[in-house]
Amino acid sequence: MRETPSPEGTPERVRVTSSRRTSRAPARRPLETELDEQTVLGEVYLRGLMRAQFRLAATIIAFGVAGLGGLPLFFWLVPDARDLRLFGLPVAWLLIGVLVYPVTVIVAASYVRRATRLESTFTDFVKRLS
């Protein structure tokens, strides 16, 4: 995995570098190159990351669909809930007019934390193998 496989008959690869890369450790490149060139190995890693990210996104959306999207259906099925009061205030209005916003922010922030952690794990892994 140190060497990039090069097909028969093609000219030898020439590494073209620009000044902006000179400060980087050259030892870091190989696995990144695998990713870059869609070798089987790079594909496997990237598909794994994409699948993990997509699963995370799907979890968040499922939470929203069930929690928020379930409310109209709930009101449809349970007409008594439509006029529910808490200290004289209508519960439906409090839920959809006020409470929904802080919950949304919390969900969004927790998504970003998890997505960033997934990516950091991936980045560390790539760098360790390089």
């Binding site: 990144e32 870059d36 990351l49 990516e119 950091s120």
Partner: peptide
């Protein structure tokens, strides 16, 4: 797709 999903910090050529 590699470009869209590869995190910052991994340098794709």
């Amino acid at each position: 797709l590699a470009r869209l999903h590869t995190p910052e910090g991994v340098e794709l050529q």
